[in-house]
Design a protein around this nucleic acid. Structure first.
Lengths: 162, 162
DNA sequence: TATTGTTATACTCTATAACTATA
DNA sequence: TATAGTTATAGAGTATAACAATA
């Protein structure tokens, strides 16, 4: 098949439906449908954003930081659904990339406000463009009306719990 | 299955929408909508199946093994979208749980066929019931017609190339 | 006492690559 | 030569727990 060395074909080519395989109850589960979509989308996202070393989580962090002035690390962790210790490493990585800075909070000397650097602001524009193009690509099989309906249904499933 | 329907999700630490936070472009991205749903669903799945130590991946493996006679490890890896080395560890775990056995393949002495043990067959029935109840719970906010539409749209996004 | 950010540590999941025994 | 399963090893990503500074 390939002439390369002993290389695996890992998640680079996830096939939601392998021909000849009986998926049983999986085919009727909403959760497995979401899982299938998520794996495909994640793969395409990472491949598309590889030039910037941006993962979905990093993009989420940059976007939320850019839209919420003086966001605290603990808030970021809560938003992303990870532990504070994980948020520290994430912010460390984004800081090492020159995208994020910790600025001392005026009203709380324990805390820092997270802000984008000028480079972070600039690059996030291009990155966001790439993400939006990726998002249009994964939704390309949906008619505009179907896209809106899918977003509505997703919000119903994962929307505010209130 | 005969128990009353739980419309309330267990305590989770991921909040799809943290109050007071501006999510910017994330709110309009199909990929982030799927990500939100996936995180919520994954959490509820793991919590629900904790008594059996069953993760979504383990459940997928058990189901596919049960529905496809003499499934090979390499096929399983491809179906799940992971490397063969990962499939080895996964099957090791399922074997240690007494659910799966490797039986030598008659026509290829390098290969093994994966089969469920009697205990695996028995437990998978109960596990599948629990998974289906979990799946009904996460889709509880959708009307029956909306559920079908969501499955159709998910198949459009991640379904077979058609 | 509680909270913020941090560090230390460990566990899980996954990948790459090399190895064996077959084909 | 190629493939099936395995092993060894490393890298993310995450969690828990403890800590110092501050509230």
């Amino acid at each position: 098949m390939t002439s390369s060395v002993d290389t695996e074909l890992p998640t680079d080519h996830f096939e939601p439906h392998v021909p000849g395989i009986d998926y049983g109850v999986l085919d009727s589960l909403l959760g497995y449908g979401v899982r299938r979509a998520q794996l495909l989308i994640y793969e395409d996202f990472v491949a598309t954003l590889a030039p910037w070393s941006i993962t979905p989580q990093r993009f989420s962090a940059l976007t939320v930081i850019s839209r919420n002035a003086q966001l605290k690390l603990t808030q970021l962790a809560r938003i992303l659904g990870i532990a504070r210790s994980g948020a520290v490493l994430l912010v460390d990585a984004l800081a090492a990339m020159g995208y994020v800075e910790r600025v001392p909070s005026p009203e709380d000397r324990r805390a820092y406000g997270l802000v984008l650097t000028p480079k972070g602001i600039e690059d996030l524009k291009v990155i966001t463009e790439a993400v939006c193009e990726h998002d249009r690509r994964i939704g390309a099989r949906l008619a505009p009306e179907e896209s809106r309906e899918m977003m509505r249904l997703l919000r119903l499933v994962a929307g505010p719990r209130a």
